[in-house]
Design a protein around this nucleic acid. Structure first.
Lengths: 149, 149
DNA sequence: CTACAACTTAAAGTTAACTTTAAGTCAAGA
DNA sequence: TCTTGACTTAAAGTTAACTTTAAGTTGTAG
């Protein structure tokens, strides 16, 4: 099966201009052309693009993804380096997850805060609530918001 | 306790220019000035800034955070609206967590892939491995990378 | 064979969230 | 009082990752 840039973009849920941009940036050295110069994407290119998309979601920049693609093009010599790269990405994403969980904790605290304010008709109530009256899981979070040290 | 822009920036781990930018964008209507025109940050402003930072981490834009701050300034009339805002942020962050988990699954698959390739000396081995030979938790992920539908 | 949608390129434009610069002012220690 | 580091502002600059535009080409359906 092969696809034009528009078809592949649709399959991936991105704009055709994004795929052309990726190619210009050297991310798609494996994409071939028809005799007339039209890009020809294959199913294997879809897999490449899913990996590129994954690396982007881990927070990697285009220029670093290009380096990774170059490593891939060099073949089995670079397996160790590519393994190390993904292990680093794993640590990075796990860190992002932890940070996002902390953000979620804060948001949950604020939901509790406004639910309590709503029930009372005023934010004075959650504002002035002593530590022993708030739900146990909210105590640490409020402390963090107030001092962070 | 009060702080200059530089001191507060340090406490928050951001650049002073970022705090000046936030003020210019209307995020800090509560920050006062000395007689000479120097910004005076208080401990309560630190709490505001932690909430602003939290909202930023949920993916909210400056202009939308400004709207939230305005709601706060209007007082208890807007409690419901603010609760709804945080509930929406909660759903948003939970969605981000799910997406990040999917990204992590893919990264973990690639770690397995390169560990297997490393042991074999070639990517041919994980490439050609039949479904029944790969770890059970990798099967779905490889399928997703190959087709997504 | 023609029309036309979708392709091609290079170059310029967009956007958000800051950062930098330049020229000047404030305020605390010596 | 003087020096000096940190403050002030407005305006211009930065960066990444695209998107848009303009002018032209390809390829398929009728």
């Amino acid at each position: 099966m092969h696809y034009t840039v528009g078809e592949m973009a649709k399959k991936l849920g991105v704009a055709p201009s994004a795929l052309r941009y990726y190619e210009k940036e050297g991310l798609l050295p494996f994409v071939e052309r028809s005799e007339g110069g039209i890009r020809v994407f294959r199913d294997s290119d879809y897999e490449w693009l899913k990996i590129i998309s994954c690396l982007k979601k881990t927070g990697m920049q285009i220029k670093d993804i290009r380096s990774f693609i170059h490593l891939c093009m060099l073949g089995d010599e670079t397996i160790d380096e590519r393994l190390a790269l993904f292990q680093k990405r794993k640590a990075e994403v796990e860190k992002q997850m932890a940070e996002l969980q902390e953000t979620l904790d804060t948001v949950n605290f604020k939901c509790w805060y406004y639910e309590t304010a709503k029930a009372a008709g005023t934010t004075e109530v959650p504002n002035n609530m002593p530590d022993e009256d708030l739900p146990p899981d909210m105590r640490e979070i409020r402390k963090r918001l107030k001092s962070e040290q």
